[in-house]
Design a protein around this nucleic acid. Structure first.
Lengths: 340, 340
DNA sequence: TTTAGCACTCGTCAGCCTAGAGTGCTAACA
DNA sequence: TGTTAGCACTCTAGGCTGACGAGTGCTAAA
């Protein structure tokens, strides 16, 4: 469909536009990229490219910019992921690894780094405790009327909650109940807990045990809404497409609605590896002029969450691709190592 | 110094400017606020007010806007905190209280609410664990080479960290060490731990105990940098003073440097009650055109952190004052109740 | 002391113009 | 048949201008 020269012209347009954010004219291409033909010839090719939908003319006397279809072709066919030098790879890995005491901090740092390296808005969905396996439940007497409930989930996630009690519970009692609960629930996931099973188990325990089960389930309600972190929201002001305040504000407001972002990320990260979604390919209206680059991160073989960036369709795909991939991989590696 | 009428004129200027964000002219005042005198008279008064520094003329043929000194007078003398209807007070209290399972969530929610109600950027400094008293230390075997260290601090703050060990520790051993550490450290603060004391204690314990002490101290390093939450950063775009993208970006970038904000808040919240700092009164260059309204929140009688908003000097002081006060009070009340 | 009137100063905005970039078309050329 | 040069045309960005309106300070009269 596209002959050699058309492809070269398209590539020149995409490259130039990504760099300059200005519509690219035929003369610019002829001058800057020496394709061996004159501007007039390039004009003809551009007319064809426009007719087949790869490029767009914002107004009649302007240069051309890539369409979503043009970017898609670029990403699928032309783009070569920009290699990241080994030293830089190490640096990034180290910097993320420095936060490996706590999973949430780790993920946050990955997000921050991602924003920094791409100059885009970084989005990270924290590990989803829904599908984590319960490892241990421990109760701890704090004083006469407070008990600390500690829940340890498989890949090293610890959650706790303080519970009020009417009477004092002695350590041996708590120890016994801890053991009972652990024996009964070990190996289950949060998801299992929610599925009616809870009611069945409820009766097996005394008052305290039942109350704790309730706490676990209500905890679950919190965890249902995934934790999403945004980073580098400010950096979008560097992009000329957001020089208009209202547009920038609209975009940020949209991202602020956390449900929106996690839906987006989840819908995109069904597949493994780096996914690129361009403009109107995005399921959410309102970001039809944005592209999203995501990947998932895992512990062992299990996908734990997603990470990605969002920015204008005009973004440095080759670089962003590599960075997202690298950070997702680093994260997986560190997390896997962590729970080994 | 200021006679009755000058005060009325000043009040009119401040009120009108806060509302409209446009320089206020003498005719506007004469028309809108019926002071019983003509525009010309008001002009004379305004000339005097300008000479004594209460108002400023942005350019020669414009109306007047309040200076920092003008706002200061307004805040100290003229302003009456805007009463919040009982029903709304309840609503706010309830909404914050809904998150009382966990202190950090609670504080976050207060911040979110503050941003929502004031349309400004809300800043909250989370409880400072530095000055919290250690209540209990508990060790829990997770598996052959991981031990969970749980630290319970006095006002209901729980921290945990997973520790790698070379060998397996049996529950009784861990129980014994937990008890030893708790006995020895109970009643101390993080701050105490840092102060050389640690080395002294170090030798009293075996390998594991010493390692755990180290973890507590390194935990401390993290906690040193206070947790600061920003909320509602987007809302500043609604303020006309930030209609310029670069200015807005500069402001947000400044706030992003978390050290800056916590220094700011700390320096302002030495005193109890609501503090208002206007324009150049602020210690930080870069926000000389902003005002900051802060208050502290406490558990019992001990100040735990600070909460506040930052926005352009032109802000609805009366309303913001009341809201900040209410939320700080609610927070204190809920937290105090929580640890009782 | 207050007020009306007047001359004066600016900032804003619409309208106009120009320079520059870019196009499509046509005709000539290889 | 594909390529190129030339040309007329279109459109935007940006600068300039002049009218308008808001606002002031000053003066003189009440």
């Amino acid at each position: 469909m596209l002959n050699e020269r058309k492809i070269m012209v398209l590539q020149a347009i995409v490259d130039d536009y990504i760099r300059s954010a200005e519509p690219v004219g035929s003369r610019t291409i002829a001058r800057r990229y020496n394709l061996g033909v004159s501007a007039a010839t390039i004009r003809n090719e551009m007319a064809d490219l426009e007719e087949t939908g790869y490029i767009i003319q914002p107004h009649i006397s302007a240069g051309r910019i890539p369409s979503d279809k043009g970017y898609r072709f670029y990403v699928d066919v032309l783009m070569e992921p920009e290699p990241i030098p080994e030293q830089k790879r190490m640096e990034i890995y180290q910097r993320v690894a420095a936060y490996s005491q706590e999973i949430e901090l780790l993920v946050q740092e990955a997000s921050r780094l991602l924003a920094l390296l791409t100059n885009l808005v970084a989005i990270v969905v924290a590990p989803q405790i829904e599908s984590c396996v319960i490892e241990q439940i421990q109760l701890l007497a704090l004083d006469d009327n407070r008990v600390l409930v500690i829940l340890v989930l498989h890949p090293g996630i610890v959650q706790n909650r303080i519970m009020r009690t009417a009477v004092r519970y002695e350590p041996p009692t708590l120890q016994r109940i801890s053991q009972q609960l652990t024996d009964r629930l070990r190996g289950m996931t949060y998801r299992d807990l929610r599925s009616g099973l809870i009611r069945e188990i409820h009766s097996e325990f005394g008052d305290l045990g039942a109350t704790i089960l309730d706490i676990l389930v209500s905890e679950l309600v919190d965890s249902r809404q995934e934790k999403v972190f945004l980073n580098g929201a400010n950096s979008i002001f560097e992009q000329p497409e957001f020089k208009d305040v209202n547009r920038a504000k609209g975009f940020l407001d949209l991202l602020e609605q956390k449900g929106v972002v996690s839906d987006l990320i989840n819908s995109l990260s069904k597949l493994t590896g780096v996914q690129i979604t361009i403009g109107h390919e995005n399921p959410i209206a309102g970001i039809h002029e944005c592209s999203v680059v995501t990947s998932t991160y895992s512990i062992g073989n299990e996908v734990m969450g997603a990470i990605g960036v969002i920015g204008p369709t005009r973004m440095e795909y080759a670089n962003v691709y590599s960075v997202v991939e690298l950070i997702a991989d680093s994260l997986s590696e560190i997390l896997t190592e962590l729970v080994k």
